[in-house]
Design a protein around this nucleic acid. Structure first.
Lengths: 242, 242
DNA sequence: TCATACTGTCATAAATTTGTAACGCTTTAT
DNA sequence: ATAAAGCGTTACAAATTTATGACAGTATGA
């Protein structure tokens, strides 16, 4: 998982400790010691997750979290708050509502990594760069490639070409296989929040995706659920009983 | 599934954070910053659940809750109170006013979602996404599939195809199994608020549902209660006598 | 800059679903 | 027993939802 994580923490020792651990776990790490610095970083590189100390010198962690949530570009970034012991609950009212999780100091590197993993899995399964393989399809987010093979012969791979949107769509559908997604859910999560696109446009992209899959004999993977939306499924589509 | 939630909260930041989290969890969200606004919204669209801030600028949350409970159309809507206080008296007052649950700030999105889920399971089981399994039928709202199997052999599943309405109807009946529903109750809750449809139409859909179930030897699950309506039941239909 | 690839929208066709009316059978009440 | 009320069934046209192909505007890349 080439996940980029931004650490916002003013205490240098802690910052470095965390950074070290995250790097060792294979993450890209960005560090900031203040909200101001963090803002600059964010405007350059969009991190996939933010570790945020709630006591910061300039702006409080809450405020920075709110700022992240307010702007479209950063709105969807998962946030994990780092907090010291038990704070006055009134003061952090609302704070936790913006964070995906929080962790109280002191914490072990292991706990931190576990929480990061959990948050990512929960929030962005389609972001985790794991290879998804099912129904004779293998999608590799890292290389951005999709291979096909006959179900019984995993040897005979062949690559198929997808446009950017089709790729994301397929990736999302596969990441949540078997689940039905409404068109608006797909628009929100594949296209992005707050896009002003017709629901029907999804149909067209589904069509394009299907066309490509049909060409390699994988027609039944993307299924329509009338009245609801679409689904990626390995199981056979309902063989209705006469 | 496709649960519409009304958030009544005057603090914009919190309102948005909650909205964001709910949307991400796949809910439809309506927002109001005051009881007055909330009233207007409710008269347009009937939400499935209300998140209600205890302290509102114009009318207190409790009062709004009472109002909802007073009117027939809104009487059955589950309410979760959001409160900053931890006082016992508030809890009592809130519950007296008809709240189904309450949650004190600050709360994590996870906790909020968990409580919503719990309340839905208790109050609107047909809205919760849980798999319902009984009488050799397994209905999965998430994947939108219904499987059948002989009661003694849970292995031999086969999928059955239902139209959108039949699916909702079956889902509703199963969610409230053993309970009789009048035709108008079914129209209200399966078809939706304020539909102008003949009562008799329900019969036809029941017929369609039965036809499909008969084809897989599940004829006795949907039962008629003469003079009243229909019922989904695992117990045999009045064969005790005879 | 030009050519190619991608996108979002439409219009139209195709497929399914839905609500009703009509008719006949069963149960209930008189 | 007979009429009335309640249900089951079927057929069907209308309405809704999807699929598909074409098109024009944008990106993208060479």
């Amino acid at each position: 998982m080439a996940v980029t994580i931004l650490i916002v923490e003013d205490e240098l020792a802690i910052q470095e400790l965390i950074a070290l651990n995250l790097k060792r776990a294979g993450h890209m790490v960005l560090c900031a010691a203040s909200a101001e610095q963090a803002n600059k970083m964010v405007s350059n590189v969009l991190p996939d997750l933010v570790l945020l100390d709630w006591m910061l010198p300039d702006m409080s962690g809450i405020e920075f979290a709110r700022k992240l949530r307010r702007e479209d570009r950063t709105k969807a970034i998962p946030i994990i708050m780092l907090t010291a012991r038990i704070q006055e609950s009134d003061k952090i009212a609302g704070l936790e509502a913006g964070a995906d999780d929080y962790i109280t100091k002191p914490f072990s590197p292991r706990e931190l990594l576990a929480r990061i993993k959990a948050v990512l899995r929960r929030r962005l399964p389609e972001m985790s760069d794991e290879i998804i393989e099912m129904g004779g399809l293998r999608l590799d987010p890292t290389t951005h490639r999709v291979h096909v093979y006959p179900i019984n012969e995993p040897e005979k791979l062949s690559e198929i070409a997808l446009g950017p949107t089709e790729f994301r769509l397929l990736h999302f559908l596969m990441a949540y296989k078997e689940r039905v997604h409404t068109r608006s859910q797909l628009l929100d999560r594949v296209w992005g929040d707050h896009v002003f696109i017709e629901d029907r446009t999804v149909d067209v992209h589904i069509r394009r995706l299907r066309k490509i899959l049909e060409a390699v004999d994988k027609e039944n993977l993307v299924q329509t659920v009338r009245g609801t939306g679409y689904r990626f499924s390995v199981e056979c589509d309902k063989e209705s009983i006469e």
